[in-house]
Design a protein around this nucleic acid. Structure first.
Lengths: 218, 218
DNA sequence: CAATTATTTTTTGTATACAAAAATATTGAT
DNA sequence: ATCAATATTTTTGTATACAAAAAATAATTG
């Protein structure tokens, strides 16, 4: 799939940062990574640029590149923007969504519910993402869709934590239902409000998120 | 300011694309640009990556990089997202803005008005940007602020066209005033609605934008 | 012995070299 | 002449080489 060597290195490095192999503030050594991946410095440097653009890493001229994990404040800010972007999608979708797309959302929710019932967490995450992706698409704005996918991707590692939480899954599902209902009624404001609350970090979700940030300290 | 050679090349290329020197679909030749800038291919390729990330250029593996100017549809989509993002800023700012920031917005508007009176278009553009940047800042969300600035920057060349239009300037100014008034009243919904209409492409603005897209054809 | 300067070593940024893939030109057959 | 197959040239992607800047270490002086 990836034609360039640098691309696969970029996703590999991304994973290593998410895994915690490279922690915040750590410098990424070009030559070390080059021999680790059995390539020259060139593709490593290209991968660095990609990571820098996505914000996972900061490149300081003539100094090197350093891992930059979002802190609590930045993370809350990112989730707030995600919630607002999805709210915009919902409001636009309410007047633009097609009948077939509504049907597809219902089916996705059914599959999501089934995954919850069988405790298939992988299936749940997949269908959940499908639901949100469909919403982005139904905003009728391809640019907005791309921006949402970009931010969602960036928040993904922090999102998984949030749902490991008693009762949260069923609540999440009923929120999905409420969104579809609002969309069917063409009620954009309600759909926006529900999904804003669905995505926003608030209440116990806040504590879960904060807890997931602490590595293994204390 | 720019420590790396590649950075200054990136902004130079950006300018050349905005200028219309390199038009949509045109392939950017590495070796040609390298000798044109008196550097090797390496910094050119780094510059390409930056432009690709900002969406001005598309890099097709093993093929080359091609200029990708947004078409009418994508441009309208981008303006819609900009309008919604600014609406979010306004709504959040309504409850988060400080007294001193409100004062600053008033002063910016005064300077903007003065620029309109003296037909100082450069001054107008500067103060106008200042106004919007202040709004992003007062959302109280640094991440949102950055995202807004990023999109604003990308739309800048298309934005200038829009205001060259009889009566548009004074209307724009009264919209600014209405936004500040709503913020002072803490009325986020009104502030959001006003700025959404302020930024959105609608009515005559649509025709202006479409006209600005046609190069010199016909 | 501390602090500052000189020197060495690393490391980044850029240039050049080379290999593989794609585009283009050439040849040959019908 | 047209089309297919092959050879040639371009062009991209990667490796290596080199120069300059930064960091680390050693040396010198007060």
């Amino acid at each position: 799939m990836d034609k360039r060597r640098a691309d696969s290195i970029a996703v590999a490095l991304e994973q290593l940062i998410f895994d915690g192999t490279y922690t915040d503030g750590m410098r990424l050594d070009e030559v070390q990574l080059a021999e680790q991946f059995n390539v020259s410095r060139t593709p490593i440097r290209e991968a660095f640029q990609r990571l820098a653009q996505s914000g996972m890493v900061e490149a300081i001229p003539r100094r090197g590149v350093f891992v930059r994990q979002p802190g609590p404040v930045e993370l809350l800010e990112m989730f707030e923007v995600m919630a607002e972007l999805e709210a915009v999608c919902a409001r636009l979708a309410a007047s633009r969504i097609t009948e077939t797309a509504l049907q597809a959302l219902h089916e996705t929710n059914a599959r999501c519910n089934a995954a919850v019932a069988t405790k298939d967490s992988d299936g749940y995450y997949r269908e959940n993402e499908q639901f949100h992706a469909a919403l982005y698409r139904q905003s009728g704005n391809a640019f907005l869709e791309q921006e949402c996918l970009r931010l969602q991707r960036r928040l993904q590692p922090f999102r998984r934590m949030q749902l490991r939480f008693r009762g949260r899954l069923s609540q999440s599902m009923s929120e999905h239902e409420a969104i579809v209902t609002a969309l069917e009624a063409g009620d954009g404001d309600t759909a926006a409000a529900v999904i804003r609350g669905h995505v926003a970090v608030q209440g116990e979700k806040f504590h879960m998120l904060m807890a997931s940030l602490k590595p293994a300290a204390e």
